[in-house]
Design a protein around this nucleic acid. Structure first.
Length: 268
DNA sequence: CTGGATTCCTGCTTGC
DNA sequence: TGCAAGCAGGAATCCA
């Protein structure tokens, strides 16, 4: 699932396309455009001024009021190819042809992802919560949003309006590293646990970015290559395997409708 | 307001 | 071995 480290990696691997001009956009599926504030034609001959990321969203800035926002859902990919490449992927829904000889390909079999053409990106992205890799995300903030809350801490970590960018993989991995069970009520965390969880989230996201993200199944970077953080996963996808710390069998249970992996020995 | 369930979708995995 | 059902999940939406 493309989460913060994966989108950050895509952003970094596509950086060289900043400044390139859009020649044309080829749409194979109209409905992959989830919102269209202006006609597609208005993007023609506009340069990509900036490539940015907010939470799990990739943001291509063309004008002050012409923005392309890409969301990869769970099976989406967004990568560059040579314009002339005939590489055939099965579920390519859109291709953005650039003046630098490249094209940016959006593919997404499960179609949970989509493309947003927005006049005002702040209105769309503004609802997102704190970026976990900024100073703003600290124990005081994590404490503030968890107090009095009965919701499972894991479900809270997945709420994009509170913290933006954590998905199922990094929620499970952060909670393992912090030694906290995912089904604990958010409000029950002690000050020490809040500190530990805050640090674990930052650490695991940074390590994953260093490894170019986690390719569990679908994810690829901006060059259509796999990441390598899956080698360092301690709990996600490891149900019935041994805990790397204590040897206990990793347990999987549904929490908030999401498959959740944890070690009953190491996480309390 | 909170928190849980439901919905969308395809492809891989499971079970008979 | 083959096929159908089950499962996976990000985020919007609905409901109690």
């Amino acid at each position: 699932m493309p989460e913060l480290p994966e989108i950050e990696t895509i952003k970094r691997t596509l950086m060289a396309n900043q400044g390139a001009k859009i020649d044309k956009i080829k749409l194979n599926r109209e409905d992959i455009i989830r919102r269209r504030d202006f006609p597609l034609g208005q993007l023609q001959n506009k340069s990509i001024g900036e490539i940015a990321r907010r939470g799990k969203y990739l943001w291509l800035v063309l004008d002050r009021d012409r923005n392309i926002i890409i969301h990869l859902g769970m099976s989406g990919r967004f990568y560059q190819l040579d314009e002339t490449s005939a590489e055939a992927a099965k579920h390519v829904h859109a291709e953005i042809y650039l003046s630098n000889g490249k094209k940016l390909v959006f593919e997404d079999p499960r179609r949970f992802g989509g493309i947003y053409l927005l006049n005002d990106p702040q209105e769309f992205l503004g609802r997102l919560g704190t970026e976990p890799l900024t100073e703003e995300f600290n124990p005081a903030y994590l404490n503030k949003i968890t107090r009095q809350r009965k919701i499972a801490i894991k479900s809270l970590l997945l709420n994009q309006n509170l913290i933006s960018g954590i998905g199922n993989i990094y929620a499970d991995e952060s909670l393992f590293r912090a030694g906290i069970r995912p089904d604990r009520a958010a409000g029950s965390l002690t000050a020490a646990e809040i500190d530990s969880l805050c640090g674990a989230i930052k650490q695991v996201l940074n390590k994953s970015i260093d490894a170019q993200g986690t390719t569990f199944r679908d994810y690829r970077n901006g060059f259509n290559q796999e990441g390598s953080f899956q080698k360092y996963l301690q709990v996600y996808g490891r149900e019935k395997e041994q805990c790397t710390r204590c040897g206990e069998i990793i347990y999987k249970q549904t929490i908030g409708g999401r498959g959740s992996h944890f070690c009953v020995q190491c996480q309390k």
